[in-house]
Design a protein around this nucleic acid. Structure first.
Length: 327
DNA sequence: GCGACAG
DNA sequence: ATCTTGTCGC
């Protein structure tokens, strides 16, 4: 059972998590009408409304047959393809060191359950919006959405039945992370898979706390140990048109290494592209791909930073009743 | 006032 | 996100 892999968090990333205020106010603090609002504050208020509107279209349940049946490897050929999970997508964006605008976006489709790449779309994109914590989607979602829409047009037969997104789903200050945003805009099931815990609510006052093994109410996501080689967990939350249970099931089936294959491949390919940019002429925007792959360089990233030995006493795994933040 | 903050 | 080698362990 994958739930056995869930473990209580004693890592530093989790320490900063705080309890959500019961009287949830807008997370964007409006200054008292003394100083004029900064550009960032204006953006936050505008984007917060947008998130709220889009969130109404979000669906947190399994809507497709494959997600209800969860037919696995051995019987996959005995059923009509419509009932099976066959195509899993992954998206990721990589950046150049000193460039805030130009980045490389990758969208891949893997065949399931073999997890082999059958489609890839990697290209440079322009990211104009700034990155503001809690509003990642406004920086990245358009580039990703375009690639998905492109596939809808040129080869809808291999359109992924679910897309894994690097970033959070409902595990988000306002319950609407990048995975949700992308899901609603593309009308595809999405799953958020983050490599770091995003604090849903900052510690407001001394004494504020958050039970990781929850108390009541809504479950925002799970902390998931994806493989035995790494104690460093990932953070899974449903994005759109998928249930918590199915989201975990999909991620589990996509694990070769710590990061599920769809997003891992998207990450590898976009980095590779950026790298070939640097090796090539700096003025040329269209570099020719070099087939040179650094087998060892990749491998390093696969097993990220092991947990410090002092924090390794986490034999306390969470049970199936895991709750996270209340909403 | 300062640090933290998915990617 | 990005800057970065070797190294320890199964």
């Amino acid at each position: 059972m994958f739930f056995r892999h869930l473990f209580s968090v004693v890592r530093k990333t989790a320490v900063c998590v705080a309890m959500e205020a019961s009287n949830a106010t807008a997370s964007v603090e409006c200054k008292t009408h003394n100083s004029p609002p900064s550009v960032e504050e204006v953006l936050k208020m505008k984007w917060e409304r947008e998130q709220k509107d889009l969130k109404e279209k979000m669906l947190l349940m399994d809507v497709d047959d494959w997600s209800k049946l969860k037919i696995t490897t051995d019987v996959v050929n005995k059923f009509p393809q419509k009932l099976c999970l066959r195509y899993v997508g992954g998206v990721d964006i990589s950046f150049i060191k000193g460039d805030d605008v130009n980045a490389c976006a990758a969208f891949v489709v893997l065949e399931f359950p073999e997890l082999k790449i059958i489609y890839k779309d990697i290209s440079m994109v322009q990211l104009t919006a700034p990155y503001i914590p809690g509003f990642l989607a406004f920086r990245e979602v358009n580039s990703l959405k375009e690639k998905i829409e492109k596939l809808k047009n040129i080869q809808p037969s291999i359109l992924p039945q679910v897309v894994l997104v690097d970033g959070n789903g409902i595990l988000h200050p306002r319950g609407f992370g990048l995975a949700c945003h992308l899901g609603v805009l593309t009308d595809l099931p999405t799953i958020g898979v983050a490599k770091n815990l995003f604090c849903v609510k900052k510690l407001q006052d001394a004494g504020d706390w958050l039970p990781l093994i929850g108390i009541s109410g809504k479950q925002h996501g799970v902390i998931y140990r994806s493989c035995k080689e790494s104690t460093n967990p990932i953070y899974i939350s449903p994005g759109h048109k998928i249930s918590m249970e199915t989201a975990i099931w999909v991620v589990e089936k996509c694990i070769n290494y710590r990061i599920p294959e769809p997003t891992r491949q998207a990450d590898i390919l976009s980095r590779e592209y950026i790298r070939s940019l640097c090796n090539k002429g700096e003025s040329d925007k269209k570099p020719s791909h070099k087939k040179k792959k650094r087998e060892r360089g990749q491998k390093r990233n696969e097993f990220d930073n092991p947990m410090p030995s002092e924090t390794c006493e986490d034999e306390s795994y969470l049970g199936p009743g895991l709750d996270l933040w209340d909403s």
